[in-house]
Amino acid sequence: MNTNKCFSLSRFWTLLKWQWLLEKRSFFLKVVMLSVIYFLYIFLSLGKNTFYRNPAFWETNFFFLITPTLIFIAGLSFPFLRSKEGTFEYSMLPATSFEKYMAEFIFRCIMIWVVSTILFIIMAEASYILIKVIKPTSNAEPFNIKYMETEQSKIAISLFYIALAQSVAFAGAVVFRQQALLKTIGIIALFLFLMFQITLFRGFLMPKGQYNSTIQDIIKESAIIPVIIMAVTLITSYLFSYFKLKEKQIA
């Protein structure tokens, strides 16, 4: 097999440089925008002195800010595919579908994890310093990675959910031409609603004695099904987006 037909390191490097040249302005704008949002949110949360009322303050806020960021950025993948003319340009670019896919994946799904985590840490530190300057008596404590290590399984599940949502948003960006992110969010919402309905329905079919279980119990007992569905969805989304990209044609 001639691997050069599928992947060439030098061509991939050229593609990454190409992507950076095209994206750098928008990348810096997004970094500025996210920095402002992260800073304001963390600063105001710290100012409300909720720190000691919520032991998982940093963990909660980390996921609250990171989740929409990652979905939003993944949903904006493949900007060339938003128009027929752009699709044409992208299709004629001398690189394989796999290289194009990997370049987008690295930029929009991997790099953004690193960038948004670093931004969160910087903004958390900046907010803490400012709070201490304005209000020296504040009980707030600086962000520390140890806060994230308390409930590792819970964090792992949260990360899995984010990765799943990210993969679906990424696939949506290949499938939909217009308002890809909105349409994908709509599909995710519908999917979650159906999952919820299935879980409830399954609960009603349970043997007598469990019939009066709470919704939380029912969800907990049937947790394995959603986990399997979600794991399959995650892998399928990435595979689907790759094959969809490969088959893109000018209609």
């Binding site: 050069n4 037909k5 060439s8 095209l22 044409f88 340009e89 001398p94």
Partner: peptide, 26 residues
């Protein structure tokens, strides 16, 4: 098949096109 070694030998100027937000030089 859109092999890159084919695509880098064909240049197509379409009737309508999309340009990214760049200068001609960039």
């Amino acid at each position: 098949k859109r092999n890159p070694n084919f695509l880098n030998q064909v240049y197509y100027v379409p009737e309508e096109f999309f340009f990214p937000n760049l200068t001609m030089e960039a």
